[in-house]
Write a protein that binds this DNA or RNA. Structure first.
Lengths: 279, 279
DNA sequence: TTCACCATAGAATATCTATTCCATTTCTCT
DNA sequence: AGAGAAATGGAATAGATATTCTATGGTGAA
């Protein structure tokens, strides 16, 4: 036994202890330390053998890790990981009550966080109900055929298009983030041809530049896929396929969770479609 | 084997099955049935012996109960009880299988969308549970005092920082999106002073540039707030306050919903704090 | 009442699991 | 560079675990 100090019996203390210790622990034990905090569920349910395999260490290393933290053996450590799940489930129903009642000790920031969380969840639920599989299929098909995908999104929508550009890039899909570097946006779009596709994202109040860029592309017969928030959006009549995404808002700040999920879906689905059609 | 019908693989279906069957089951098996629904955690974590003791039946009764529901043995049944606690997002193949069983005809894209939605929701739930109000308060306080807020985030994290930059801008909070225009990032940070604050966001695999920029700021005594995904992140030791946000992923693409909610919270809370302290 | 059948209890068993041990490698300090 | 200490991998082991088996007890039909 290498540690006479008493071992933590609850997960919160254990976590702190592991973080403190991790730095001056041998290589393999550090590896286990980080694995254990990254996959606590695995530790809770797995067997020594299965966890050792997943963390690419020897079973004995797990036992030594537990002992170095002051536990009698691995099983003893595992109990603490299990208690975390036990407690969590027990608290699950209480949590909502707790939040509603104990607004007293809630700070302003946590109230704001709660508001944004709720807005995100509402938005996701809403889109899941409304999203039309046929439209989605159509958009994926169009995008998959594109030579280059032009991404148009400014202000609030820019994080979405910049994410898509990053993800498309990693997936090896040619794309162009319009207006990314300085103000050459008009020029960027002027290269688009009917073989390409424009993906435009804009919400009220529609940024005029997004509209004019999309119009320019439309005039050149470039197929347009749009994500917007209303049938009356100026993007809707321009688009071959368009999605209505209404994000809930909190204090005037709209969530982006649903739009982002849709964006990720389009990205991955297009990549998947392409890899299938190549084979 | 007394039951050739396939056994439920998820807890919800199992629960229904047990309730249907409970009525016309032998005495001891009925007893086990009601115990299992009343103490699901016990079933998930216990051993055959310990559960048998708690439910006052014989170990063999538990095995027979599992078999009468169509499982191979008790361990097989126990897996389903464990899956209830294990917050696991189904992967693409499992999802398809699940939909096929329920006769829902779904397109690939909608399956992907479902996966991303679920990942987003799980991430939000997880963060809501873990987020420490005191830390949040501390971070807001630090950021509110900042002369200029430097936002550091590349690759996956760039959409987040770019959103914050946009929102801070609209709220009249001086900020600087590091590395936004071309590669002058090092120079950007070199202007930061201890009166400013750096907000750094990075997830595995940590972009080396984010780390080195944050280190540079740290060396100049600039207070650092970090959002990252593990206590072992290189950002954690540099930060005055740091948040652990673990995003669920679907098919290797991590959600950004939780990080984004936290980012929005910080943004709005800082604005709110400033407007209060001015009056 | 008696027979046949099913459920049950409890012991027996075969499997799996955590843990220990020791030879070998890797690190650390002089 | 070399000696000593620490850490590691992998096999051996002691213990626990789920499952099966069989004798017993109970229940309903003839």
């Amino acid at each position: 036994m290498m540690n006479t100090q008493e071992a933590p019996r609850d997960f919160a203390s254990l976590k702190i202890r592991i973080m403190e210790r991790a730095a001056d622990l041998p290589r393999r034990l550090t590896q286990v330390a980080s694995y254990s905090l990254e996959h606590p569920d695995e530790i809770a349910f797995g067997t020594v053998a299965s966890i050792a395999l997943a963390a690419t260490v020897q079973p004995s290393t797990l036992v030594r890790f537990a002992q170095s933290l002051g536990y009698q053996g691995f099983s003893d450590l595992q109990d603490v990981f299990r208690s975390r799940l036990r407690d969590r489930i027990l608290n699950y129903d209480e949590r909502l009550e707790h939040l509603r009642q104990h607004d007293i000790n809630a700070t302003k920031a946590t109230v704001i966080f709660g508001g944004f969380s709720e807005a995100a969840e509402k938005s996701l639920a809403d889109l899941r109900e409304k999203l039309d599989p046929a439209k989605l299929e159509e958009a994926v098909e169009t995008l998959a055929r594109a030579d280059t995908i032009y991404l148009i999104g400014l202000r609030r929508s820019f994080p979405i298009t910049s994410y898509m550009s990053y993800a498309f890039g990693k997936l090896g899909i040619r794309n162009h983030l319009v207006g990314a570097m300085g103000g050459l946006a008009q020029e960027d779009v002027s290269f688009a041809s009917p073989k390409d596709v424009v993906l435009a994202i804009s919400f009220t109040p529609y940024a005029s530049e997004t509209i004019s860029l999309t119009q320019a592309a439309s005039a050149k017969q470039v197929p347009i896929i749009a994500i917007t928030d209303s049938p009356f959006s100026p993007l809707a009549p321009l688009a071959k396929t368009w999605f209505e995404v209404t994000e809930a808002n909190f204090e005037g700040f709209r969530s982006m969770a649903a739009t982002l999920s849709l964006a990720m879906t389009l990205t991955v689905a297009v990549a998947e479609r392409r890899s299938n059609s190549k084979t």
